[in-house]
Design a protein around this nucleic acid. Structure first.
Length: 415
RNA sequence: GGAGAGUUGGCUGAGUGGUCGAAAGCGCCUCCCUGCUAAGGAGGUAACUGGGCAACUGGUUCGAGGGUUCGAAUCCCUCACUCUCCGCCA
């Protein structure tokens, strides 16, 4: 959520910034709504002040046993005026709030301008592409069963068997241990969240169709970002405790509405996948440094797994709704002969903090924190990358050194 | 699922119809005292929001939403959540 005061004061600048990411902010509709709000609010507050005075007079008359019926008539009239104006005001405030909830974050000045994915900027490439393998993960190992999953649940689910299930579990533990070593506190959190939480992180109200909703009005979490960030919703934090770094492994659930026909094969795009999420709650002055730090923490995992990857900076047009600046990490997928996203590290500035009311006290007064998050990493996609990059072309998937102690072997034999 | 008790400021916790945005304590800030530390003393300290260049000055908020009333933290209703006991249960 944007700061409405900032919006009033710097309308043109914000309008131009939002335009860069493809959001058209209509000046007339905002101004007229806000002007009307101002007019009504002044009227309502004046009426409230008058009513307050009259009521206390009424109390005094009553106490001294004097006649009150004349005054009551005056107050009744005041009250009915107030009621009418106030309901108008509430309506206007609701519309204004809906407009604000619908507006995306302002891109940071440093974000490259562009209209789509095409304009994203490659920041750096890491590791060496050595695999010449063209088989995809489903062809390499028969231990990923999508037909069985279809029987259980439907499309976009998978069953992992034996070694593959264990390899996934090894990756999860390995990644969590990396996060803990980097100073993140591990949390175990609910996998369902309420409407307030999802509004806080920006998934609602705009993106409800991307979520699975239960009959109890709870939503399955699309990422651990939701529970982890909302741990701090409506909290006042101590300035000296910032940045707070937290992590959790959770399954993530996404309806993938609107992605029909896209990535239909294999593990790449599933309704349910495992992910380790890194979240930092930071001081506004440090948030860009913290983003760099978090990005480094995520990259370190691919370095250790010896998987080739590149870092991309998203352009204004490709930025997520809540994000002011985003780096994507893309891992090399031999069968697709291209890099695919495995983590998205973003600085949301005060956008989520405003929605979630996360603040800290400082000498200069109370301010909203900045929130940062990113995957560290998406486990399902990491599993694919590992299988495809480390397949020897015959009958073996090699397990990198860092995983051996978790997996208990340095290779998987394909039967 | 049954019975009961709760939800008040950064925290703990008083407050059953107007003088309550709210006692007291903790924490925090300023000052005094003190050789240092500790202790002690005086004062200050809720959030959000409107108007105003400002000084300043309005309004809202006591879990949420309704209701009663001239007037609600306080009375009534509905809902959410927390805790205790019972039942069930991984």
């Amino acid at each position: 959520m944007l700061d409405i005061k900032n919006l009033r004061d710097n309308f043109k600048d914000i309008q131009i910034s939002l335009k860069k990411r493809g959001y058209d902010l209509n000046e007339a509709s905002f101004k007229s709504l806000d002007d009307y709000r101002k007019e009504l609010q002044i009227e309502v507050e004046n009426l409230q002040a008058e009513r307050k005075k009259l009521s206390s007079e009424f109390g005094k008359l009553k106490a001294s046993g004097e006649e009150t019926s004349d005054l009551k008539k005056v107050i009744d009239k005041k009250n009915s005026d107030l009621e009418k104006k106030d309901s108008e005001l509430q309506e206007v405030l609701k519309n204004l709030n809906n407009l604000l909830l619908d507006m995306p974050n302002i891109p940071h000045d440093s974000v490259p301008e562009g209209s789509s994915e095409e304009d994203n900027k490659i920041i750096s490439k890491h590791g060496e592409i050595i695999s010449t393998n063209t088989l995809d993960h489903l062809e390499i190992t028969k231990k990923i069963d999508t037909e069985l999953a279809a029987k259980l649940s439907g499309s976009r689910f998978a069953v992992l068997e034996g070694d593959l299930a264990k390899l996934q579990r090894s990756l999860i533990t390995f990644m969590l241990d990396c996060a803990i070593q980097n100073g993140y506190k591990e949390y175990y959190v609910p996998f369902m969240a309420n409407e307030e939480s999802l509004t806080g992180t920006g998934q609602l109200p705009k993106f409800e169709e991307d979520l699975f909703k239960t009959s109890d009005k709870l939503y399955l979490i699309p990422t651990a970002e939701v529970p982890l960030t909302n741990l701090f919703r409506n909290e006042f934090l101590n300035e000296e405790d910032l940045p707070i770094k937290v992590t959790s492994h959770t399954p993530c659930f996404r309806s993938e509405a609107g992605s029909y026909g896209k990535d239909t094969r294999g593990l790449i795009r599933q309704h349910q996948f495992e992910k380790i999420e890194l979240v930092q709650i930071t001081h506004p002055d440090d948030s860009m440094d913290c983003l760099e730090n978090l990005l480094k923490n995520a990259c370190e995992i691919l370095d250790k797994l010896e998987l080739p990857y590149q870092i991309i900076e998203l352009c204004t047009g490709d930025l997520g709704f809540s994000s002011a600046k985003t780096f994507d990490i893309e891992v090399w997928m031999p069968s697709q002969n291209k890099y695919r996203e495995i983590s998205s590290c973003s600085n949301f500035t005060d956008f989520q903090a405003r929605r979630s009311n996360i603040k800290f006290k400082s000498k200069e007064g109370n301010s909203f924190v900045h929130t940062i998050n990113g995957s560290g990493l998406a486990v399902g996609r990491c599993l694919i990358a590992l299988i495809e990059n480390n397949f020897d072309g015959k009958d073996t998937i090699n397990i990198p050194n860092c995983l051996e102690q978790y997996f208990g072997s340095n290779k998987i034999k394909i039967s």
